[in-house]
Structure formats: structure tokens, C-alpha cells
Nucleic acid binder design. Structure first.
Lengths: 211, 211
DNA sequence: GCATTACGCTACGGGTCGTAGCGAAAGCAC
DNA sequence: GTGCTTTCGCTACGACCCGTAGCGTAATGC
């Protein structure tokens, strides 16, 4: 979020209900209008607040949509399904379900596009959206190591590199499938993706044998 | 493109130079301003044409940027490097190099985001950008089959599904790495990605052993 | 009550949109 | 050359959205 009433503060506190209403109104506007036709005046009207109130809390459309979309990913969990394969399939299906929602589709890629020219925005996206997803990768690996499905890490740097790779592959594949190919990331597809991933990870860390 | 002087046509022909200038100006504006601050009036000025001329050829910002970005992918080739691994690494590095350019970064994801609410736009993106990339996957597989690196296809439907999966994984991973993680898809990363892919593809088509 | 901060509302200059209308330019048919 | 057709550059226009300033009011802590 952006402003949680600074504890030891005098004066009228900010309405927490307003934040909730604004973010919900933003998602509703994304569904109805999409990114480009979404206007802050319209969001304010939908939320039942004055336009000035909205501007006092968010710097602009980009920041507002990031926060509105970020809430969608709060529900992401890594349930223990007993095996690494099942864990991966479970979390990927959750991720796919979120991305299938129109407010996520139209909002997420738009702010990512804008973030290529705005470092502060990219950092905001990273901390409030991307980092939460990435954590699931690390948790999943740790759990698999506990189960004995994956060997313990030897080189920390190389382990981090692998985690980054896996994250980009999984998240990127689901996003591309959903938004570019415009086809559902359903159970069958996720099963295929998981299999490619697990087999691919079974390969030793390369390091040599170059082309 | 959008309009190539319809052969048997009377009247003053459209200036082909104007098309070129407009698309180049669009890319330049993407670099300088990004997607959201790009205005058609500014593009027209940069291209040295009247704003009305631009509107006579493109319906709006979305279509214009799609065409401008699509030209960036014209240079994508699949050079024969002798092995499937080398071929993959080569084409992925090309793809990464294009995505590293600021006009591609800011333009591509923006139109993809818009395409989630505009079927005609998605179709335009598909035919002029995505399909060209996908063809490389099919060519690469065919070449590997000729070399004997991959077995010939048995089930055509399953072969198509695998190609779609590979395409989403590769393109999605590179896009995610470049735009979301905001780190370069350099030689080392591409080597790791390729190894995961090749090992993953070595797995039999599943169908059983389900979670 | 008093200071302080948030809120709703109105109004504003500035910018972009997409289009209409006009005269001039560049082709083709004859 | 004379017409016909289409494109081009230019200007002007109403409509919309932006982001902010100003003001009076509401809600909290002291």
C-alpha cells in the first residue's frame, strides 16, 4: 500500500475504507475500460471519493494500477501437495487463474511496459508483485530439498542463478501463454510445463561442454 | 504493413516514403517518450507529415506501434550452427538483442496489454509479430530432426502442442527476464535456459505417471 | 476550544484526441 | 494539354482528460 496512517500523527486520519474502495474501483475500471481508457476521474467517481483525494494518495495512474493489481496476487500460496511436481502444478495453476482475470491481463502488462522507462515504478512492481512470486520458488525448492527430491545447494551463487532462471521460465511461460498466445494455461498445459521443468533441472549445472 | 498502393488504382498514390518515415518516427518517439507519453501529433511532426495523413493510414496508436515494433523482428533468422543447442542459443540471443532495445521494451508489452481487450489488435500482433517467431521453432525442430537430434513426429497433434509449449517457454522466459526481472539475457543465461529446455524435451511425452 | 490533517467540491489552464474542411499536388486516362 | 481521382498539408474545432489550486467542512489529538 502507500499510506497507512502514520501512528503518532495529529489531525484527521486517512480513511482506510477509501483506499479499499479506490483499489477495487481501479480493478473494476480495468475490467470495463482497459488500461488506456481508464481515467483517474472515473476511478474516483466509482470509488465515491473526490478526484483530489485520489491524487493525494497516488502519484499517478501507474502507481495506482500497480497497487490495485498487486492485491490480486496476495492469494498466492504454496500448498504442500506431497511432491515437487504437484507443488509446482498447484502454484502455477493459481498463478494462471489470477492472470486469466481481465483486470490482471490488461493492468499488469501495461505497468510493466511503463516500468521500462521508470525505475521507481519498476522497483514498486518488484517489491509488491514480483518478489512475492519469487519467494514461492525458493520455498518450493527448500521443501523439495527437505523431502530429498532435490540435492542440497553447494554453491549459493549458482543456486540463486538457477532460482532466477526457473522463476523467469515459469512466470514468463504462463504470462506468454495467457496474454500473447491467448490460450488457457489449463491442467494439461501445466502438466507438460512441469515435466519439462523437472527434467530440465535434473541436468547437471553445465559449466562446460559448450557449443 | 497497412496500405501498399493498390495496383490498378487511379489518383495520387500514397507516399511509400511517408510510411517508412512514420514508422521510424514512431520508434524514435517510443525511445524518447515511452508508450504512455507518445502522441500521434508528435509522431507526425517527427516524420515530417501532417497529422491527418497519419490518421488516414492507421486507426490509432495501437495499430501504429504494432507495425513499428513488428519491423524490429524482421531481422530474426535461424542460422545453421550445426547443432540444436547452438541453433537455439543463436536465435534466443537474437531475440534478446531485439528486446533489449528501448523501443521494443516500451512498445511491445503495451500493445500486448491493449490486445487483451481488442481481438483485432491481437490478431494483428499475432500475424505480424508472433507468428514469425513461432515459425523459427518449427524450423528449428525440423532441422534437428533432419540431423537426427530429435525423433520424427508420430502424433501431429501432440507435436503441435509441444511446439506451442516450447514457444511460450522460450519467448516468455526471455521477455520476463528482460522486462520484469530487468536483467540481461546474456550468453550465460541463454546457455542455462537452453540446457533446461533440451533436457526437458528429452522426457517422454508424459501421458502417464500423473501426479 | 484549538491546531492539524483529510475530505469534497469547484474551477481552471494546458494538452491531446480525432475529425472536418479547404486548396494544392501528383498520378492516370484521354 | 484537360479532366478526374486520390492524397497531402494545413487550420480549426469541440470534446475529453490531466493535474493543481483554492475553499469550506469534517474528524482526530491535545
Amino acid at each position: 500500500m502507500q499510506s497507512s496512517t502514520p501512528a503518532g500523527r495529529t489531525g484527521r486520519p486517512r480513511s482506510a475504507a477509501a483506499d479499499t474502495a479506490i483499489l477495487a474501483a481501479t480493478r473494476a475500471a480495468l475490467v470495463d475500460l482497459g488500461w488506456s481508457k481508464l481515467t483517474l476521474g472515473d476511478v474516483a467517481t466509482r470509488a465515491g471519493v473526490a478526484k483530489t483525494t485520489l491524487y493525494r494518495r497516488w502519484a499517478g495512474k501507474n502507481e495506482l494500477v500497480v497497487d490495485a493489481v498487486a492485491e490480486l496476487f496476495d492469494e498466492l500460496r504454496l500448498p504442500d501437495r506431497g511432491s515437487l511436481a504437484a507443488d509446482i502444478e498447484g502454484v502455477v495453476l493459481q498463478f494462471a487463474a489470477i492472470l486469466a482475470r481481465p483486470e490482471a491481463k490488461s493492468g499488469l502488462m501495461a505497468v510493466v511496459a511503463e516500468s521500462t522507462r521508470d525505475d521507481a515504478l519498476r522497483e514498486r512492481i518488484r517489491t509488491s508483485i514480483v518478489e512475492r512470486q519469487k519467494r514461492l520458488v525458493l520455498e518450493g525448492r527448500a521443501r523439495a530439498q527437505t523431502r530429498g527430491e532435490l540435492p542440497p545447494e553447494t554453491d549459493p551463487a549458482e543456486a540463486a542463478r538457477t532460482a532466477d532462471l526457473i522463476f523467469d521460465v515459469v512466470a514468463g511461460a504462463v504470462v506468454h501463454r495467457t496474454l500473447v498466445s491467448a490460450e488457457p494455461a489449463d491442467g494439461e498445459w501445466v502438466r507438460d510445463l512441469t515435466q519439462v521443468l523437472l527434467w530440465g533441472l535434473a541436468s547437471q549445472p553445465a559449466e562446460s561442454d559448450g557449443g
